[in-house]
Computed example of a mutant assay.
Amino acid sequence: MKNNLIIDESKLMRAIRESYGLEITDLQFLLRGWGGDCYRADTLAGTPWFLKVFDPVAHQNSVASSRAFYLPLMHELHDRGILPNIPHPLPTQEGDFSLKIGSNELVITNFINGNVVGFGKLPDPIVAQLAGLVGTLHNCRAQLEFEQPFIDQFEISFEHVLLQSFEILAALDENATPGQLLLRQTVLPRQTEIVTALQELKKLQAVARESTKPKVICHTDLHGANLMTDAEGRLYILDWENALIAPPEHDLIFYAGESNFWEVFWPPYERQFPAAGIDPQMLSFYLYRRALEDIADFILRILRVPDRFERDQEDIQWMLECLNGIENIETTISGLTN
């Protein structure tokens, strides 16, 4: 992937020197994420930094995001000591939390030395530590003010993309990549199932929009790949790009269906957020929306970024997990309310 970088590295280093006053001695490409290219930058002063270069064209997806909201949020959460163990943006010399470089945008945060927790079932101590942090986050809205608050409107922004993808997949010809053909073979037999789930989501959307439940600050993407622990066992929450103001159920979807939810997650969460409570229909809305949103994103990525069959196979496996997870939503809700 390094051969197809979003931006020329010499141009990137020059922009950082001019706008941040940082003299980079070593720039190490780390990975290409959903939003852009990620680097570690070592500097003459000896401080490492984490860089992310966003490409608004090549890395579009269906998930709502507002840098005007989440970058000041990260800054405030860290500087006020609410959540000190999170990445926080380095301002430019003019005080901005991001830098435009042509059509791209750069964000620099502190570099965290640690190990990513990863996907799969999390150990109970990590779940408990995370629950306390999430409760703290959900209980801090009154302490913060935002010039541009980003509030969930319960939209289904991916609906058109998802429905259109069925037509695109059905019309694939001999020019399609192996990954796209495998995607068609996987998705079209389950088209009715996906459409039925979308219809259920739209019913839940109407209920959610009528709800008067208070909204809190949510991270919205609290899976193990966005968690990191350091040598002292401290837990860090990474990747705040999809943070917004929403009902707390938005952050509970990754853990509410686990067998240890009430015993391990809920007590430390409720201690930090005593007003906590779960609305089953709101939780259902977010479970359906997240699953269908991820399915739409995987389909979109395979259709837009060709010639990477191994990655396409991985994406299709993740997409199948999302599809199979839809079948378990009602069981999850029933288990929480009984």
Rank of each mutant, 00 (worst) to 15 (best):
D124Q: 12
N115P: 04
F69W: 07
P84M: 07
S65K: 10
N104M: 13
Q93V: 10
T47S: 13
I82P: 09
P91Y: 03
G81A: 07
G118Q: 01
I112H: 03
A45I: 04
N61H: 10
V63K: 11
I86Q: 09
S103Q: 15
D42S: 09
W49T: 02
E94F: 14
N110W: 00
D79V: 11
L71E: 01
D96S: 14
L71F: 03
D42G: 02
V116H: 13
N104K: 13
P48G: 04
G102P: 08
N115R: 14
A128D: 02
F119A: 14
P91E: 03
N104G: 10
L77V: 08
E94R: 15
Q60W: 00
Y70G: 03
I82L: 12
G95I: 07
P56V: 05
H88R: 13
V107K: 02
L83G: 03
G118D: 03
F54L: 09
V127M: 08
E76M: 13
D79G: 09
L90K: 10
F97W: 14
L44N: 07
I101V: 06
H75P: 03
L71T: 01
V57N: 05
I86Y: 06
E94Y: 13
L71I: 01
P48K: 00
I86F: 07
N85W: 01
I86S: 11
V63Y: 01
T92I: 10
A64R: 12
E94K: 15
G81C: 08
K100T: 13
T47C: 12
E105R: 14
I86P: 11
K100S: 15
N110E: 07
P87L: 00
I108W: 08
G102H: 05
P72M: 02
S103F: 15
V127I: 14
R80L: 14
L51G: 06
S62K: 02
I112E: 09
K52N: 04
F111A: 04
L90E: 06
I108F: 12
T43K: 01
A128K: 12
H75N: 09
D55G: 03
F54H: 12
Q93S: 12
L73W: 01
A45P: 02
V127K: 10
I112M: 08
S103H: 15
K121V: 13
G132F: 07
G95H: 09
V53Y: 05
V63L: 14
G102N: 06
M74R: 00
N85I: 03
S65T: 11
L77W: 00
L106W: 05
I108G: 07
P123G: 08
G118R: 03
P125C: 08
G120T: 09
Q60P: 08
F111C: 07
H75K: 13
D55P: 08
D42P: 07
L73A: 01
L73N: 01
N113Q: 15
S62R: 06
P56I: 09
T92Y: 13
T92L: 12
V127H: 06
S103V: 15
P56G: 05
N61W: 02
D42K: 10
I101G: 00
F69K: 00
S98G: 09
G118H: 06
E105D: 12
A128I: 05
